[in-house]
Nucleic acid binder design. Structure first.
Lengths: 141, 141
DNA sequence: TTCCCTGCAAACCCTTTGCATTCAC
DNA sequence: GTGAATGCAAAGGGTTTGCAGGGAA
């Protein structure tokens, strides 16, 4: 019954799912590959990508194709938004309830049937704000 | 004075800017390259990319790094959102005023200083909705 | 003349894929 | 046992870059 998920749960897949679910982070396929390799050194890159996409299709994880960089994979499966620091590249979750109503507006404007949306806020994270203050103190302007 | 933009407005750059501003569409660098080639067949791919990024940095156009596909470039320079059809890949503008207040929420939640955001709504465009109805009529289910 | 810009082509990164082998069911 | 999944390696798409030649200021 629990085995009837429509695909085989191989050792590789277990490890990958575990890593993505385990880390609270938003990892790229490359990062996941490296972590997974520590537990299963023979794992191939192709397997990681195939598996991540399989999981994303089945809704076990979320793929977040992220700007001009590598896709991020997220163990959180509820819809949510992100903030991205364009200094250090960090990516964090945010919950913005008002974004939900925006979907209605978008449907009305375009005639689309909308089944998802993703907002990326860009800005400077607190750490980088702190660094910038230090930098400015040294080389004025 | 108008020439003091900090960079040279060469014939290549004029053509590229003109194409991006002219089409009301969201073109990829590849599409821009092809259109621009018709007017200047010796134009190099590298020039197109370098120029597009230059313009985007200076705020003359917007680059919209779009999911797992190629970046789209937009002659519209005011902040706005998009709807993306995951059937045919088309991308359209939407104006969602409520998205603005979401920035405040995101700032409060994360401590970021937010200076931009971009929302992509996913769904099915009207054309694809029509096609699907036709398809369903043929091969029931 | 000087520096910026171009064309060219190679390189880069992330991702996908074909194929023979291996393995979960 | 058998089809599905893996490992490997090569290829693919989009993008960037080094360099020498060319052109605007």
């Amino acid at each position: 019954m629990s085995a009837d998920r429509g695909f085989r749960m191989t050792p590789q897949r277990s490890v990958i799912l575990d890593e993505v679910k385990g880390s609270g982070r938003h990892m790229t396929a490359g990062e996941i590959y490296e972590r997974v390799r520590k537990r299963n050194p023979s794992m191939a890159y192709g397997t990681v990508y195939r598996t991540l996409h399989l999981f994303a299709e089945r809704g076990l994880i979320q793929e977040f194709p992220f700007g001009d960089q590598a896709s991020r994979f997220d163990g959180r499966i509820d819809r949510h938004d992100h903030v991205h620091c364009h200094e250090c590249g960090s990516l964090h979750d945010v919950d913005v309830p008002s974004a939900i109503i925006a979907r209605q507006v978008a449907e009305e404007q375009t005639g689309f049937v909308i089944d998802g949306h993703q907002t990326v806020f860009q800005g400077i994270c607190p750490e980088c704000q702190a660094k910038q203050k230090v930098t400015n103190r040294h080389d004025k302007q």
